[in-house]
Computed example of a mutant assay.
Amino acid sequence: MLSNSSSVLKTGDWIKGKSRKGELIIGYIESLNISQGVFKVNVITSDNQETVGKTIPILSNQVKSLPVSIVINKEQILFLIDLALSTGDEDWFIELSSKLNSIKQLVNGVN
């Protein structure tokens, strides 16, 4: 774990920050180097499309933790399922699919 100005961050946490070139990025921490204060971040979205899908180093003082969001509707879950597939996170995909199935069962039970 590595601490920055806003919280303690660890592998798997979602962050937003700026690359060394000043590009805005949103992604998740793949690894961290405590002694150097550097995160290796898998970039999911960026204002530089060439960076998307790559893992780049970012200094810990250049990132902030993204807040955990509560998924409440089908569209949000479908978006997150796509994200889980694109990042190869099988456990998250299974968890989200289960939530989606629960919503479908609830809707079918109301009809």
Rank of each mutant, 00 (worst) to 15 (best):
100 L>N: 05
64 K>Y: 02
23 E>D: 15
57 P>Q: 03
33 N>E: 11
41 V>K: 02
47 D>K: 08
69 S>D: 11
92 W>Y: 13
29 I>N: 03
41 V>R: 00
82 D>I: 01
59 L>N: 09
53 G>K: 01
46 S>F: 04
85 L>T: 10
104 K>W: 04
101 N>C: 03
34 I>D: 10
52 V>S: 01
23 E>A: 11
36 Q>N: 11
32 L>I: 05
102 S>P: 00
31 S>W: 04
95 E>M: 08
83 L>P: 00
83 L>M: 14
53 G>L: 07
86 S>D: 14
102 S>Q: 13
80 L>H: 10
80 L>C: 07
99 K>G: 02
66 L>K: 09
68 V>C: 03
29 I>L: 02
43 V>G: 04
71 V>S: 05
69 S>Y: 00
102 S>T: 09
37 G>P: 07
88 G>D: 08
82 D>T: 06
98 S>E: 12
48 N>G: 03
86 S>E: 14
60 S>E: 02
105 Q>G: 02
40 K>A: 10
33 N>C: 06
79 F>N: 10
68 V>P: 00
48 N>T: 07
81 I>V: 12
49 Q>W: 01
51 T>M: 11
77 I>Y: 10
106 L>T: 14
95 E>D: 13
55 T>Q: 01
58 I>W: 01
55 T>R: 08
103 I>Y: 11
101 N>K: 15
55 T>V: 15
87 T>P: 00
64 K>N: 13
56 I>F: 03
90 E>F: 13
90 E>I: 15
48 N>K: 12
30 E>Q: 13
54 K>C: 05
79 F>W: 08
81 I>L: 09
77 I>Q: 07
80 L>S: 06
94 I>T: 12
36 Q>D: 13
95 E>R: 12
64 K>C: 08
86 S>N: 14
78 L>N: 11
96 L>K: 10
71 V>L: 15
